[in-house]
Amino acid sequence: MMKRNMLATVFALAFFLCLGVLSAQAEGLDAFTGKSGKIDIAGGTAHIPVMKEAAKRIMQKNPAIRITVAGGGSGVGVQKVGEGLVDIGNTGRALTPAEAAKYGLKSYAFAIDGVAVVLHPKNAVNALTHQQVQDIFAGKITNWRQLGGHDAAIHLYTRDEASGTREVFWEIMLKKGALAAGANVVASNGAMKTAIAGDPDGIGYVSIGHIDQTVKAPSLDGVHPSQENAKSGKYPVIRKLYMNTRGEPKGLVASFISYIQGPQGEAITAAHGFIPTK
């Protein structure tokens, strides 16, 4: 009897919770009711989970709206929105003044994100210094034993040149230092995580929002790379995630940007491991 009551209570609670969530969702989506059209989004790969989730929620409520989401990297984001091939080009770094001026781009930040070194969870190394990271990626440290780990060659993974994550990592973490030419190149944050999760001797770097139990992030100079530390400024390798448009956003695009920056978008952003900007 007790059991059944408890079950009923749990169900009721769950029901009301859902209801609450649903009604809250509907609220943020009001801006889209009755509208139709399409939004094409491309660029930064760290953004994809947030964008896909938002797109799904909007399209479920408003079948007349079509939102397409593609990746490619921050470079793609700038290029495609600049050429007008997409409506919103995402970047995981601030635009250079040249980029902004050349295409007349407007940036809208919606999240703070750190970039952290990641290792395989079984790797015995749990802490690295800034200098060690630079030496590893420059190819000066080549064995995990030199770092107190197991005796195995270090497998370097880096990102392609279009990546904003790479640029932030290179500028802040590596201080624009050398990057070993032999490093494997992967095309996205997700791919980096997959590669490191599969390689016990691998080392790479991803957006902190992408870190889950399949990879682990060693502390950097004693600071654990978490979004909290990133937000507070204790963890130094941080950037913002931006949506960029050519000129002032209008219509649907404007609604989408304010949806992402609004309470609904913030919830999605937070749920995917990023810190919403205020």
Binding site: G72, D160, E161, V185
Partner: peptide
């Protein structure tokens, strides 16, 4: 996809085709 000359079959290498796909962005 490392942009280098491989020294052994176990080294990473990048082909022209993959290069185009990576850099077109």
């Amino acid at each position: 996809n490392a942009a280098q000359l491989p020294h052994s079959p176990l080294d990473s290498l990048r082909t022209l085709t993959a290069h185009i796909a990576l850099v077109v962005a």
